[in-house]
Write a protein that binds this DNA or RNA. Structure first.
Lengths: 360, 360
DNA sequence: TTAATCTGATTAAGCGCTTAACCAACCTTG
DNA sequence: CAAGGTTGGTTAAGCGCTTAATCAGATTAA
């Protein structure tokens, strides 16, 4: 493991000062084209790699961004991480990850850690009501447009509208929305959007998983079959995860998706297309979000940076989501099982008999 | 954004030299207990945070580890990232992520990037046949025990044995294994293990998705129903993803899992427990793997580090996997209740860890 | 009493890079 | 042809921290 050559090694090898080498390689000072080429050549020959530590110390910039998520274990993380890493790399920045393991307190600690490590800026993806307190460092927050302090994010409300309108257009009139808990801005926006898109006709209600589980324990049944009996034909979950749970529960109850009941999700998680039925969902444009977040951060960090070619004078804070219609959503009057008697009859016998895999 | 105080600020405030402050805070040189306390006090008061850049430059250690994966977008990434981040943080290290987006060439570039950024070591999770070429930096490779250069990893072969034995014990005699492509050491080990665990009785064949898709296009049917007609009752996929695809295809064909046919996966991805039927699979002990990988790296980086309390003289290179029996696997004859024959088979691997299935 | 030791601090150098300031030579231009 | 520009470099300081070398004074040993 040979000690890596540094600026002075190159300088000595050529017979110039190290400042000249620095200037030549960074193209800043005044160096003759001739010498410049010679230096570049020598640098390559020696396998020179600039020490970021030295540069960081001298310039006060580490060229590292911190990425903090509420929970790295979340299946949405890969999308974030990949998009951010890409955008950051393109801008010449590295990405340091921080994890708060779902704990809000740990989040502050995680952020501090990243700052100590010298991150030039932080990209924060908070979860339910994190106080983005005084962070002594440029921050870009990716949450939802309705959150104060939000920098850029998917337009969750609009995404909700897409889902709501989609369900309405399919002909559904009774919609149950499945959320996790009430103190999430993202979920609130999504739900608001769904209600808006669905319109005021018919019946809409919202289920909170947290509340249900508080009573019946984690992983409990959500009682969806009961709702179906009451006439609900569509379930819109605020996350593919909950949608998956809903599909499973409904299928266990002997109901078919989408023949009997429609289920939609949110986020287009990796597997959403692979499950059966493939999930109708809505997807954020993560690349754009990441790009904008990084751009915003860079603007805070180095205000005099040359604006990128795509000079959007008014960078959108809310990036539109995209509806992805797959096979978990259909018209309530069932194409597959036409004889579905949906006369709001509350008789449980009208449900297909259980034929599931649920018994022990 | 006030400029953060540094060592000399503290030193000046108290009236000592900055070297003394450094010594006091790091507990290294000789400083009187009295002064030491006073310095610590002042440091806290001023909100002193050491500059990692300065320290890095001076010590030659950045206290940052690079994490390189073949594809950050992979759903297994969160598990890796979380475990590694945790282990690294515990050891006082940060984690810088690198992504090669599936491309082998990019991987080298990604690694170089991390090294330039000053990573003290690299944790590499390669994919199929990456040459871990001469990396001029401590590396820990997490792949599979049979890969030369592997540092630590799950014991994929043993995990395969668990699955194979499980299926055999359930009474299956015709097993089809679903792999992606042949040039993956991990998959090869898993498949080898499955075959070993399943034993030599009956019929075992392997399907390669890549080969099938080369003919019929991506996302094509795998022809599983046809195999069922030929008498195959169990499908063991080398990844939960493929298992999910198999379940979907089988269900589309009107076959019920596990009543008609058994499907198992690998990796226990986030959603494996949520789908219907919940997937029988095998899980790596990511915490242990991450801990060992980081420990190995630290040993290379700072050989004189005090060995951690759990002084395992021979750190296992292969961390056992754990079988997680859920409802996607059952006996081929029995419809719903697998007659779990725990005959005194001397193989300890056959003891599954039962997981409470949340039934109605 | 004088030399050896120990204690608690200071000095100074250096990690690798950047950058303002300086300088020598060479080229304009009125 | 002298004053002013330009060109192509050099010098030196400094970023914040660590650490070996040093040193003054107190303590102990001989």
């Amino acid at each position: 493991m040979a000690p890596r050559p540094n600026l002075s090694d190159i300088a000595r090898a050529i017979g110039v000062s190290s400042a000249t080498v620095s200037n030549a390689l960074s193209g800043k000072g005044r160096v003759s084209a001739q010498l410049s080429r010679q230096i570049a050549e020598k640098a390559r020959e020696l396998g020179y790699v600039p020490s970021l530590a030295g540069r960081a110390l001298s310039t006060g910039r580490s060229h590292v961004l911190g990425l903090v998520l509420a929970d790295i274990g979340h299946p949405l993380f890969p999308q974030f991480a990949q998009a951010i890493e890409q955008a950051a790399t393109k801008a010449g920045y590295g990405v340091l990850i921080g994890d708060s393991r779902g704990d809000v307190k740990t989040q502050t600690a995680a952020i501090d850690q990243l700052i100590e490590r010298g991150a030039d800026g932080i990209i924060l993806v908070p979860r339910h009501g994190t106080r983005i307190a005084e962070i002594n460092c440029p921050v870009a927050v990716i949450d939802t447009p309705s959150t104060p302090g939000n920098t850029v994010s998917a337009d969750h409300w609009q995404g909700g509208r897409l889902i709501g309108a989609h369900l309405r257009n399919l002909g559904h009139t009774h919609l149950a929305i499945i959320g996790l808990h009430q103190d999430s801005n993202v979920q609130a926006d999504r739900i608001g959007g769904i209600r808006t898109g669905f319109g005021r006709e018919g019946s809409v209600r919202t289920l909170w998983i947290d509340a249900l589980e508080a009573d019946a324990g984690p992983g409990c049944e959500l009682g969806l079959a009961e709702l179906v009996r009451e006439g609900y034909t569509a379930f819109a979950a605020v996350s593919d995860i909950h949608a998956l749970r809903a599909v499973s529960e409904l299928q266990r109850s002997g109901l078919s998706v989408p023949a009997h009941v429609t289920v939609t999700g949110f986020d287009d998680l990796h597997w959403a297309r692979s499950i059966s039925p493939a999930l109708t969902t809505v997807r954020m444009n993560m690349e754009t979000i990441a790009r904008l977040a990084v751009a915003d951060l860079l603007l805070q960090i180095e205000p005099d940076r040359t604006t990128p070619p795509e000079d959007e004078t008014a960078p959108p804070q809310a990036v539109p989501m995209e509806l992805i219609v797959r096979s978990s959503s259909a018209s309530p009057h069932g194409n597959l099982i036409p004889s579905q008697d949906n006369n709001n009859n509350s008789d449980p016998d009208t449900l297909p008999s259980r034929e599931g895999t649920n018994n022990a």
